[in-house]
């Protein structure tokens, strides 16, 4: 036992904040990818011809049934195997984004199905095409109605993003590990990292609550 001394953290504050910043960037970009990807997957599964829909369903099924960590390994090392050498950061964003796109698609698919059929009939009756109806009437309503669970997925994404440290992305966990390799003080640095995640989590939750309220008001 060495006893605890949190003052060891002080010289590394810059590095940790840089890591926090990268975690935020990672979360936002993977979050955006997961949202767009979620809509695409949901629409494909519901409306695309079977030859496209079935492979996507299989993909979703596999991604929901396996750990994110394993998926990251596949993307990072798998792409190298087939000759595509992408930076770890891109692999991390794609991995996180695809993983949560599958969860968002699951939510959005239920949301699209739940939009009242009268809405579709109403849009079609004024001359909207099938795609236009989906694009301008059904999907916007489905997205609005599924904001809380999708927000929940975004919060999960923030915390799960810690995992990409294993493929060497310089985010928050990785920057803590860097400091630990020099100081041999894992407890202090991991607790500090935890506190920073907790703060990011609070900020994201508050942001989502505010967004939900605004959407609620604009109804």
């Amino acid at each position: 036992m060495q006893g605890l001394d949190f003052s060891v953290v002080a010289p590394y504050v810059d590095i940790l904040l840089m890591g926090t910043w990268w975690t935020a960037i990672l979360t936002v970009s993977a979050g955006a990818l997961s949202f767009v990807g979620g809509i695409i997957f949901a629409v494909v599964v519901l409306y695309a011809p079977a030859i496209v829909a079935y492979p996507v369903r299989l993909f979703m099924w596999v991604f929901m049934g396996t750990p994110l960590l394993l998926q990251l390994f596949l993307i990072y090392f798998g792409l190298v195997q087939i000759g595509i050498d992408i930076p770890a950061l891109v692999a991390g964003i794609v991995g996180l984004g695809l993983h949560f796109a599958v969860y968002n698609a699951d939510v959005l698919r239920a949301g699209i199905v739940a939009v009242d059929f009268g809405q579709t009939e109403g849009a079609r009756s004024i001359g909207f095409g099938k795609w236009q109806t989906l694009r301008y009437v059904v999907i916007p309503q489905a997205v609005r109605n599924t904001i809380p669970p999708i927000g929940g997925n975004m919060i999960a994404l923030l915390k799960e993003s810690a995992i990409v440290s294993v493929i060497g992305i310089a985010e928050l966990v990785h920057s803590a590990q860097l400091a630990i390799s020099e100081t041999f003080r894992p407890f202090e640095f991991y607790i500090t990292a935890a506190a920073l995640y907790y703060l990011l989590n609070l900020v994201l939750e508050a942001g989502l609550r505010r967004f939900e309220r605004n959407v609620e008001i604009s109804r």
């Binding site: 915390k159 607790i191 995640y197």
Partner: peptide, 18 residues
Amino acid sequence: GTPCLIQLFVLYFGGPQV
């Protein structure tokens, strides 16, 4: 509110310090 990974690291790597 914090990642499970960090919780594991605090316990496993940080544990011996306490």
